[in-house]
Amino acid sequence: MESLIKPAAFYFFSAVAVVTAIMVIVKRNPVTSGINLVLTFCSISAIYVLLNSQFIAVIQVLVYAGAIMVLIIFVIMLLNLRPVESIMDKSTGVRIAAIFVFVTALGVSLAAILTSGGISGRSGGITDEFLAKTGTIQVISRSLFSEYLLPFELTSLLLTVAIIGVVILAKGMKVRKKTGPGSE
């Protein structure tokens, strides 16, 4: 049973991911595009589950679908954008360039897949049995807090800097005018 369900689920969710990803760029209503992107994230998350990475799957939904996309759609709704009639430049030059880029990207990915010997991937030390014994979160946190500690901490520092920067930008000039201790 398992051998049948897993590939079927994988192909189903991959198809959903690809179709909704295409919808994101094809649809003219920005809200429709946004919702389709959410669907793409959710189906990618389902693929993570099939790969036994429940934690990554949940974080994918929590962060991308549940937080970032909510903010983006929020802004689209606030601006109340109307469906785009035509922003596309349909001149021949642009079309030829688009086809060229598409064919090149497709060719590069196909070449990468074919030369690496199929899409089966390499198997490392983290197998299903290993994950069942230790748990996915433990595996991730162990590598995050030992091997990748410096990049991890640097990333959090970068995010803190970004947050502070946003607050200062949002507050505008008020910060500069007030001087001395005690001012916000």
């Binding site: 934690f55 679908a65 549940g66 759609i73």
Partner: peptide
């Protein structure tokens, strides 16, 4: 009984806002 049970619930309810 998910390994990430509570996080799963939080993640799902975070899409509830849609």
């Amino acid at each position: 009984d998910l390994n990430v049970g509570i996080l799963f619930m939080i993640a799902v309810s975070s899409i509830g806002v849609y």
